[in-house]
Design a protein around this nucleic acid. Structure first.
Length: 522
RNA sequence: GGGCGUGUAGCUCAGCGGUAGAGCAGCGGACUUUUAAUCCGUUGGUCGAAGGUUCGAUUCCUUCCACGCUCACCA
């Protein structure tokens, strides 16, 4: 709740303290002395990095430079002052002494400047006695006054809640956070360039779906007023992208947000970024090759390396990624299970008996469910990867082509790195009648209470009836890929503004009706 | 949703039945090559919220709120 102060024109936020009040008063006094605390324009000639890069020449030529940035440390010494400014490219020391700047400039520095202010400095570059590259100011001004104190200079900002809620402060103070998001941006743009060079066309498909499909997940629901129609935020763009394949596009991709109304964890955010891609005339093996090449190339171009550490463990994207079928992976990674002959077509009791020495499922279910439970509990956490797992149960892959000669298995793969599913792809089911049957099976599961089962999409069937070329698709979880490449243990560390419950007082929250808004003064 | 943990000054953290502490930041003063500047002085707290136990609660108990980890859900 924002309230105006009863004594002055300031609008107060409820977390104001004495430091903030004093800074607002400073800004008022500046205005009364015709010193603008928020100037309109002041163009730097050099970034701090450019000053560093050209330091020898700048020192030699005594050329004037104009640098700007936020004061992150300030040492006032009576008739002189040292401070560090930080801009996007780094930090740089500045030195202001009383007899080298106009009287007015020194007055502004001494009287009105706080740590956190964004300032402009014009002067010559020199090296101090202690060897630090420094701008000796000939002019100094405040460009934008900061009204709130920054976190402590030595320990910085640690509280995770504040870091996520007030990411702007996190970014000011914690350099590695900025670094992570720069890397994220480079990963995405490099991926775009890589795929575009291979002839893929980037497209945009709807985020609001009347029928939500393309994945098994619970959606967010919303409503369009003018059409009086419920809509879902998309859980996946898949069915629209494949409609485009019917339309004749042969290589397309989309990098965009998906929304899933599910639990939040270190590897799940309700909105997350997915690369989804389709290639006509390929099957899932070709897409595995592309996945591997893309991820390896992006890592090399962005980081100049293929070896990484995630969560204290190393992985290498350089060598060919191994490929194991689902059942092979269970035999390989469950100790003692090397020789167990698991089969998708065994009756559940038989499977239960076969896996009994290693795993006791919590619930009874069909064979594929027992095997999936076992895989997720015992195998997945061990898949440091990179490794492709292939041949998934068809029952949980309603949009994938089945494997010839293996009616319970889909031509599908998932890529695991760091114990996480990073990518998922398959040979796309393009037989409209089979797709219709698969949707019906999903509808039956839904009727049995499976809220994540997919919905029938008749228009999608109609599209397939026109004929979709053989094709294979891919989804890459961008957030998770960024996690493993930047060694970020939580998905919140790679999403600028992860979803949090709002603070009580922010706009949108009703004030307690029992408690009428108090008058406040600052 | 379950379990465990955290919440004390703007920030980082101590204190854990007896009237609330430090460092940094802030404020006042000294200081024209400092860099965690230094030196002197000093302000600042509904100890997350509400109940309870107690002569007395930041401290113990209960409930609630927020956040973190984890399990479940999620593939």
């Amino acid at each position: 709740m924002i309230t105006p102060c009863v004594n002055c024109r300031f609008t107060m936020l409820p977390d104001w303290n004495e430091i903030i009040r004093l800074r607002y008063q400073k800004a008022e006094r500046m205005r009364s002395e015709n010193i603008e605390p928020f100037v309109h324009r002041w163009l730097p000639s050099h970034s701090t990095a450019a000053v560093r890069e050209n330091s020898a020449q700048l020192i030699e030529s005594k050329e004037k430079v104009r640098v700007a940035g936020r004061i992150i440390a300030l040492r006032m010494m009576g008739k002189a002052a040292f401070f560090h400014i930080k801009d996007e490219s780094g930090a740089l020391q500045c030195y202001v002494k009383i007899d080298a700047v106009p009287e007015h400039s020194f007055y502004v520095l001494k009287t009105y400047t706080d740590i956190g202010d964004i300032v402009g400095v014009e002067g010559e570059v020199f090296i101090t006695r202690t060897g630090e590259l420094t701008v000796l100011a000939q002019d100094y001004r405040i460009l934008a006054k900061s009204m709130r104190p920054l976190p402590e200079k030595w320990h910085g900002l640690r509280d995770p809640e504040t870091r996520y809620r007030q990411r702007y402060v996190d970014l000011i103070v914690n350099d590695h956070v900025r670094e992570t998001f720069v890397r994220r941006s480079q990963i995405v743009s490099t991926m775009r360039e890589y795929l575009t060079a291979l002839g893929y066309l980037e497209v945009e498909t709807p985020m609001m779906h009347p029928i939500c499909g393309g994945a098994n997940a619970r959606p967010f629901k919303t409503h369009h007023n003018a059409l009086d129609m419920d809509l879902y935020l998309r859980i996946a763009p898949e069915l629209y992208l494949k409609r485009l394949m019917v339309g004749g596009f042969e290589r397309i991709f989309e990098i965009n947000r998906n929304f899933r109304n599910e639990g939040i964890s270190t590897r799940h955010n309700p909105e997350f970024t997915m690369l989804e891609l389709y290639t006509a005339y390929w099957d899932y093996r070709d897409t595995m090759d592309l996945t591997e090449d893309t991820i390896r190339s992006v890592a090399q171009r962005v980081f100049g390396a293929t070896a990484f550490t995630f969560d204290g463990k190393e992985f290498d994207l350089g060598p060919p990624f191994p490929r194991l079928t689902y059942l092979e992976a269970i035999r390989r990674f469950v100790p003692g299970a090397e020789n167990v002959d698991l089969r998708w077509d065994d009756p559940p009791e038989v499977t239960k008996a076969k896996i009994a020495p290693f795993f006791t499922p919590e619930f009874d279910g069909p064979t594929y469910q027992l095997l999936i439970d076992m895989f997720e509990a015992l195998v997945e956490p061990q898949l440091q990867g990179p490794i492709f797992i292939t041949e998934f149960a068809k029952a949980v892959s309603p949009l994938a082509k089945s494997k010839p000669g293996d009616p319970l298995v889909a031509e599908r793969f998932e890529l695991y790195i760091g114990g996480m599913e990073i990518a998922n792809g398959y040979s796309e089911l393009n037989d409209p009648q089979e797709q219709y049957q698969r949707f019906k099976e999903q509808m039956e599961a839904r009727a049995r209470g499976d809220e994540e089962a997919q919905q029938m999409d008749e228009d999608y069937i109609r599209a397939l009836e026109y004929g979709m070329p053989p094709a294979s698709g891919l989804g890459i979880g961008i957030d998770r890929l960024v996690m493993v490449l930047t060694n970020s243990p939580s998905i919140r560390d790679v999403i600028l503004f992860p979803l949090l419950k709002p603070e009580k007082w922010v706009a949108g929250h009703e004030e307690d009706p029992e408690q009428p808004a108090r008058e406040r003064e600052c």
